[in-house]
Amino acid sequence: MKRYILYSMFLGLIWCFVHGTVNFNNFLIGALLGPIVIRPFRSLYGFENKISYQKVIRKIPKLMRYFYVLFIEIIKANIMVAKIILQPKMDIKPGIIAVPIRTKTNTGITAIANTITLTPGTLTIDVSDNKEVLYVHAIDASDPQGLCDSIRDDLEEYVLEAFE
């Protein structure tokens, strides 16, 4: 029950933003509609996990650093893909490579998969069944080992810190 109230308040806030005006009436409507949304998708909200507020608050600086890194990487990714597209002669060496990951939780895997897709030259295709390997399509796959290393050292560190 406590969990329902917490998530409803969060959804109420999102409702305010979708509506455009942030005030108490909108927040109340959103929060009342929240349980109707949460109930059918209960299994996705992780009701069995415990959450501790201290842990969440301690993560905030790390999350901010993660979003900062993500923002920089998105800009770099766009410039890189723009360069490839505008080249008069297309010389690319694409390929799908397997990248081992250290994250174990579902949230962490989702975060790292989305981060890989938004960063330069890489696109997540699938997760292996045992959740240990991500299949990543790279626009320049001439050096698979180097790409694995760069994902592990540059991106996964931040994701591990922020989401685990």
Binding site: G95, I96, D126, P144
Partner: peptide
Amino acid sequence: AHMIGRAAHRHGVGLCKESVIDEY
């Protein structure tokens, strides 16, 4: 993007001929 790529690969859409590696 992840879902489109995955569905394409499972339906047997091949990679282009410039591709160098396909571990999936």
